[in-house]
Amino acid sequence: MIAKRSISLTVNGVRYEATVEPRLTLVDLLRNELGLTGTHVGCEHGVCGACTVLISGKAVRSCILLAVQADGADITTVEGLSPSGQLHPIQQAFQEQHGLQCGFCTPGFLLSVKELLADHPDPTDEQIKETLGGNICRCTGYQSIFAAVKCAARKLADPAAGALATGVAQVG
C-alpha cells in the first residue's frame, strides 16, 4: 500500500491542503478534490491543451503534472481569471470575436493567451500562432481565436477601449 502525501498549494489565491496518492494528476486534484471543474480533461497526454493552467504565471499541462509535483505551487485556473460574475478582458475578447463554439477547449486557450499577453503585450502574428499551436480547437478553425487574441491585446492595452472596437456588429 502506497502512502498518501500531504500537499498544500495555492489556487486562485486560496490556499488548499490535500492528502493525495502520488499518481493523482493536478487536473484531477483541481476537478475532483477541489471542485474547480473549469479546467477540462481532454487527451490526458499533454497534447490537446484543454487542461492548461498557470503555475507562477507559466502555462503548463495539468494532465501530465502530478499533484505532488505542484506541492507549494501558485496556480491560476480559469475560475481565477476575474472576480466572479465578471469576464476578464481576454474572455470578453473571445466572446466578441466568436473565439469559441462548444467551449470545451476555451479554458485552456484563455490561460495560454494570458501568459502570452503578460510576456508580449503586443504580440506578433508568429508569437500568437506559436502559443495557439499548443491548444487544439475542433470547432472554430482558429481564425476567430486569433482575432480574439488581437482584440484582447487591445483591450488590455487600453481598458477604456470600446467593447466592440473591431467591427463585430451588435444585434438588438
Binding site: G46, G49, T52, I55, K58, A59, V60, R61, I64, L65, S112, E115, E130, T131, G133, G134, N135
Partner: peptide, 8 residues
C-alpha cells in the same frame, strides 16, 4: 513540442 510543454 509547444511553449506550454517547454515551460515544464
Amino acid at each position: 513540442a509547444h511553449p506550454q510543454n517547454r515551460n515544464q
